[in-house]
Design a protein around this nucleic acid. Structure first.
Lengths: 220, 220
DNA sequence: GTCTATAGTCGGATAGAC
DNA sequence: GTCTATCCGACTATAGAC
């Protein structure tokens, strides 16, 4: 049983261990005993601090949402300049690239590995915890929608803009969700700083190509 | 407990139920009793037919790989024309779009929902079953790599081509892995035939923009 | 606050009936 | 081949010691 740093307060240790275990095995599958052991405490600490297994699960979701929100906040604030009235396409493009750059960083960060397991599981088999996570991720998504909407200049309807945004985000997300395939395909053992930069260059180039080239013509 | 069609042979019913349960709860988390109940049989049928829980898990992985292989086979065969010696960029582009179109279809197909849960879980927390699935998905990925490599005409190194291919595939994959977010963002209740066509148009337009525009300049 | 002890349920594997 | 019966370990929750 891998243990978290014993210096942290017990509630934090429980949260960290919970994210890991729930992410791997789900709400039903995970065992409170294992979580407690990984947090170097006993099962009844979960009852005391979180009221039980489900309370811990929801607390883990809130914690993840909070962490992601904090990490995206600076880039989100910077992207404000791209959506203010009168901002030109260059400002919107720059804001979009800033958000995507940061998103790639968060997606490739080793710390996001455990969050990602938790989130992806919720995406594919949602519980009430999904509301919590979607509330945070939705802010970023909606900002990107606003930016792409501005860049489309009326050439796409609202649905198409949203589908395009999903596809754009998917480019970054895949480096998290298909991590194992990535490592095998390229022959890396893990994603180093150079790798992150390379991924950012690719996502940036693709995003630019999409917003600069694919709106122009009547597609297909 | 949802039951599979009772007309199918017991091994098939077990496989279908296993994919569903293992996909949601993982190898450890899922219960052979529940799987057996969903397959309208008893737990010891799993022992008899698959030797136990783990045997059933691996059989489920093989079954998924087989199903995906079958569904991608026609598009994969058609894409052959894009990689033969002397095929021009138009043939390669056409082959790439054919593969992506089909991939979107498979990713949005309701039947792929349970496969996807299983596969994504393996991606993020791989067991030996990942080898089986990667063997099949890898064939498609490598074909796309070959096509993009041809289209890049030496302007990207091998690693960059692979990162670009991952990003391109990610555009389609996101409609499976972030399904819940998609439905909320667009306000759909499910993905209808019109929705699939719209997603295909977007992925096609983006893929074209990427291979036609983003290789041109020195990116960033 | 954090622990130990215990109760009651459910897990997978197996033996053996038919 | 498919089922029932049974074993034993692991699970969550709870009560209560300190």
């Amino acid at each position: 049983m891998e243990q978290t740093r014993p210096s942290l307060p017990i509630e934090m240790r429980l949260l960290e261990a919970a994210i890991d275990q729930f992410g791997r095995e789900g709400l039903d599958g995970a065992s409170t005993r294992k979580i407690a052991a990984a947090a170097a405490t006993t099962m009844s600490a979960i009852t005391y601090h979180y009221g039980g297994k489900e309370g811990l699960y929801l607390a883990a979701a809130r914690y993840i949402a909070e962490q992601i929100g904090q990490r995206m906040a600076p880039a989100l604030a910077a992207s404000e300049a791209g959506v203010v009235r009168g901002a030109g396409p260059d400002a919107a493009t720059k804001a979009l690239l800033t958000l995507m750059d940061r998103f790639v960083e968060v997606m490739t960060d080793p710390e996001s590995e455990r969050w990602a397991r938790f989130i992806v599981r919720e995406q594919m088999d949602p519980t009430e915890a999904f509301d919590t996570i979607f509330a945070t991720m939705g802010v970023v998504t909606h900002r990107i929608v606003a930016l792409v909407e501005a860049l489309a200049e009326g050439r796409c309807d609202a649905t198409e803009v949203r589908l395009r945004v999903l596809a754009i985000i998917g480019q970054a997300l895949v480096f998290r969700t298909a991590r194992s395939s990535l490592l095998r395909l390229i022959g890396w053992r893990e994603i180093h700083a150079d790798g992150v930069a390379a991924i950012q260059r690719v996502v940036r180039a693709h995003t630019l190509a999409i917003v600069h080239c694919s709106f122009r013509e009547a597609d297909q």
